[in-house]
Design a protein around this nucleic acid. Structure first.
Lengths: 145, 145
DNA sequence: CATAATTTGGATGTCAAGGTCCAAATATCC
DNA sequence: GGATATTTGGACCTTGACATCCAAATTATG
């Protein structure tokens, strides 16, 4: 459905959104999200280059969200690390239909569109406040008392 | 969105559906679908094991659809070679919410559900008869005259 | 300025998907 | 039964995604 890397990116973003008051350091994000530390560092770099997180080196540094959680959609995060590929032209390379897709690829692209739309409709803030569910990332704090 | 292999499988199925009157030989399917010959052979084997195509060896042999095009959905073809993975339990391995997914994974699984549903709604026959579009696989016969 | 805490970037390793190749098994035709 | 047409199965190669590791660059603190 989405790549492992996109999963990791989303978890990291959610972790940062849950911790808005101070920069969060890579090992802490890794711990919270259960993402391999070394690889997470790479993913965070990409998110940084795409303007989704801000990084700060040195003592007291770490990562913070670059924008408000209500202003970041799932789609943006996914696109940053692993773009949803829409089908724009016939993958067979034949152009016998003047730019229109054949029925098969029209259907496949339609499905991709559904996903894209679904992702675009949800912001990170929506994930934090969803009623009737436990906290994002299933973190252990959620089930005490 | 879907794997390359699933793409190939769908093309092959459509090609067979377009050629219902006689077995179709692997090189011919490869030609029609632009799928690498050797690899296509593997994909067809898998489709055979899953009961979607029937194979016949020897002179006059080849592959045929095992069922009516109206009876085969896109979903079945995709599942045969590359199952859509629904998210059933928290990928972080934490079970602090008693089987319910956290908001993030609930959304991701919902998107997977949309795709699954979309694929389940379309049969191979639908692809052949779709009005207002050129023939499936964008084959060259469609633009003559 | 020295030290410690961080991210950054590059080199490298691992593994499964995608792809190639060929001998063996099976079926038809003469 | 021999020749020919086909699928089948196994061995192998290639490539990109995922992952690890470490030295270098950057920044705050005393």
């Amino acid at each position: 459905m989405i790549s492992q890397t996109a999963e990791y990116a989303l978890r990291a973003i959610v972790a940062l959104a849950q911790n808005p008051d101070a920069p969060m350091v890579t090992p802490d994000i890794a711990e919270t999200t259960k993402v391999p530390l070394g690889y997470l560092a790479k993913v965070l770099q990409v998110l940084g280059r795409n303007g989704l997180v801000r990084s700060q080196r040195g003592l007291g540094g770490g990562f913070t969200l670059a924008r408000e959680p209500g202003d970041i959609t799932i789609l943006e995060v996914v696109q940053a690390v692993d773009p949803v590929k829409r089908i724009e032209k016939c993958p067979l390379g034949l152009s016998s239909h003047g730019g229109r897709l054949c029925p098969l690829h029209a259907r496949l692209d339609h499905a991709a569109g559904l996903v894209e739309q679904s992702f675009a409709e949800t912001t990170v803030a929506d994930l934090l406040h969803e009623p009737g569910r436990s906290a994002p990332l299933c973190n252990a704090e959620a089930n005490s008392t």
